[in-house]
Structure formats: C-alpha cells, structure tokens
Design a protein around this nucleic acid. Structure first.
Lengths: 220, 220
DNA sequence: CGGTTCACTTACCAAGTGGTAAACATTCGC
DNA sequence: GCGAATGTTTACCACTTGGTAAGTGAACCG
C-alpha cells in the first residue's frame, strides 16, 4: 500500500490537495502498470477514483504530464523498496540474497510497480529517459557495490552492469512472468512462489558467487 | 522477415488472398509487439498496409479475432525459430549455447516477436491461454530435454520448468531490456551485443552446468 | 464579513475508435 | 460471356478519447 510520501501542515487545504494527488497517482500507477498506459483512459481513472476526468486534468495539464508524475513516483517507490537492501549488513552472497528476497516481496505484493517499469520501457522516448534519470543514483550504488564485492573476491568477476541486468531480468522474470510459468506447468500460487524463490536463489548463487568463495558459504 | 508459411496453388485468387492475410498478420505482429495492442488502431494498421480498415475486417470479424490470428502466427514463428535448436547435434552445454545464440539472434533481428509475447501476457485472459496452448508442445520438448541432461549429469539438477523460466527470462531480459541496459550505461549497439551475449553465456554456464561436468568443458 | 483563490463539476467538442451496410470491381465456374 | 462468389472501398454510425470553457461551492485571508 503506497502512502503519502510527504506531509504539509495537515488538515489544511494544501494537505487535502496533496492527498487527492497522491490518490490519483496511486490509482494511475496501478492501472498503467497492469493494463498499460494507452489501455487506461482518464475517464477510467476518474471512475475508479470516484471523481471526474477534469479533476485529474486540473492537477496535471495532460495525460502525458500525469504519466511523468507517475514515473517519478514509481521510481521513488522502487528506490525506497530496494535501496535499503543495499545498506543492510552482510557481504557477498547474503546481501544479494536479501535483495532478491525484496524483489520477490515487491513482485508479489505490488506487481504493478514492476509492470509499470516494463511499460515505460516499451513507451520509450522521453518516458524512458525520465525513469532512467530517476533511477540513476540507485544503479550507480548497485554497480559500485558489485565492483567492491568483485574486488574482495566474493563475486565472480565480470561486467558489473551486465551482471546487474542479468540478475534483474532473471529475478523480475521469475517473479512476474506469470504466463510463462503457467506454460511450463507452474501455477503461481503463494506456496509455489517460495519454491521458486529458493530455486532462483540457487540459480543466481551458482551464477554469481566466486567458486573459491563458495566453499565457505552455503547457498540456502 | 516473415514469409508465407504455407502455399496454395500459386497465382490463384486463393493464393493472393493468403498473401494479403499474411501481410496483415506480419504488420499487425510488428505493431502489436512494439507499440502494444491497444496503442495500434485498425486504421493505423490499414494505413501501414496501404489498404482500408474494412479490408482487415473482411478477413477477421473483429480486432480481437485478428489478435487471435496474430497469436497463432507468433507462436508458430517462435517454434520454428527455437525448436530447431533442440534438434541440433551436441549435448549439455553446447546445445544450451546454441539455443541462447538463437534467442539473441531473434531478439536482435525480430524484437517485436518477443515483445509480442510479453504484450500477450499482459493482456491476459483468453489471449494468454491461447499462446500457452500454442507453445505447449515446445515447452514439453524443452523440459524433457533438460530432464535428460540432468539424468546424464551434464546439467545441475533442479526443477526443469523453473530452469526453463529462469533461462528464458534471463536471456529475454538481456536481449530486450534495452532501457534497463541504458540505465546501467550500456548502449545497445551491435558490438556491445556480442559482449553481452558472451557475458550472459558465462552467467548461464555457471548457473546451469553441473560442477563435475564443467571440468571437462570450456564455457566459451 | 466579503472578496478571492482554490478544487472541482457540468457542459461541451473535435478527433478518433471499432464496427456495419452497401456499392463496386475483379476473378472464378460454367 | 455471364452470373456468382470474392475481395476491397466508400459512406456512415454510435461511442470513446484527450482536452477546453465556463460555472459553482467551499475554504482561506484581509
């Protein structure tokens, strides 16, 4: 459940304005992320919110401007969800494991957030540039972390950017690629998710951890 | 370049009908796969094809019926692209490697084909069921292959379905997640793709190949 | 208290949406 | 060659789309 990310005076008119803007952004993120930007009309959003389309257009001058605001919000929430994992204690595998667990948790509880990022990538153009720019600090931190771990010999040496992409798409796929899972005969229930996460962790463990270091750690 | 998949009398009226239907399906697959189903109107398609929207509606009674036809075609083309790799010579790693190379080739040359599968997953409902059903025989072959390789001790033992999903989403991600690549500072040029594929192969190699067997094979 | 600002609604609109009906041209079977 | 089936177009329609203009009631500020 997304909540207000900042809080002016409270009870004031400005506060209530912020609150409805938050509501709109939350519903828009949910809808855009699951159904796609073009598949959701302003009228759809307004109906879900119990307001009129023009109320939305009062806060943002166009649907496209609303999208930009949703992008910023999604990036912010993603960073909040994941950045903490990079700050957690532990090194090498244990930290990677905690990140994977977080992504799974997010994918289970808020699939629209990850779906939205995919949607933005597909829209391309300015939208992609925006989300890229928003997430840049996080990406920098993550790759820097990988580089440190490689230097310490705890993670197999390779291009940290590519490692991040591989790990990202592997986890995101296993967590969200519901139809593909169905195709291979795996119903995405809550129980199977636990199994899936464990299998994926050992997949990633094998792929990432340096062989010399692996001897001193257990993958589960 | 997709071409006609079957060929009646030739030159006949039936042949020309089939040809235009093929053209429509090809353009629809391309557009739906890159822009999304809802983002492409029948008028858009017709304009691209140099015909009128009603010509499309003559061959399929509704936009939704057209989508079903495009799904069938996409699944068929996917199977043609990948199924051959499973029949190729070689065992264990070498065969996996050839499949990965094929996926990369497809992702580079026909990104809309893979994008379309993603789009269908998002649409959900009947569309997903349809593509799942279409691809079922291929998935069965692929998992059976993994199981044989595990029995032979050439691939690390694990759930073959999950292994397929992990490999699928990893490769698909590295091949298509262009925006994410940009975010980590990798411009998706043709040269960088070669590097990416090599890195990904060693990532997959480490993840999949059984350690005992690995000693007898080189990952690149 | 009174005017102004603010958040929002009602009333529209032009452009596009998927889809229908009928006219038209070409090619086929005979 | 001729009527019929076939593929395509022109004309049209009801409905939805993003967006504008003007109005309304409440909260704010002096």
């Amino acid at each position: 459940m997304a909540v207000a990310l900042t809080s002016p005076p409270k009870g004031s008119r400005a506060a209530r304005t912020r609150a409805t803007e938050d509501r709109i952004l939350a519903v828009a993120l949910e809808s855009f992320g699951t159904k796609g930007f073009d598949s959701v009309s302003l009228d759809d959003l307004a109906t879900d919110l119990g307001i009129t389309k023009q109320a939305i257009l009062y806060h943002w001058s166009s649907k496209r401007a609303l999208l930009d605001a949703v992008i910023d919000r999604a990036a912010l929430e993603l960073i909040i969800e994941f950045d903490g994992a990079l700050s957690e204690d532990g090194t090498g595998w244990s930290r990677v494991e905690s990140v994977v667990r977080r992504i799974f948790r997010v994918a289970m509880r808020r699939p629209e957030l990850l779906g939205f990022i995919r949607e933005i990538s597909r829209i391309g153009g300015d939208a992609s540039l925006r989300v890229t720019a928003d997430l840049e600090p996080f990406v920098t931190r993550a790759t820097a972390y990988f580089e440190r771990e490689m230097d310490a010999g705890r993670i197999r040496r390779c291009d940290p950017g590519l490692l991040l992409v591989s790990a990202y798409s592997t986890v995101l796929g296993a967590a969200t690629e519901v139809e593909v899972l169905r195709a291979v005969g795996i119903e995405p229930t809550l129980r199977s998710t636990v199994v899936r996460r464990r299998e994926l962790l050992s997949f990633l463990y094998a792929a990432m951890v340096a062989p010399e270091y692996a001897l001193t750690q257990a993958p589960r």
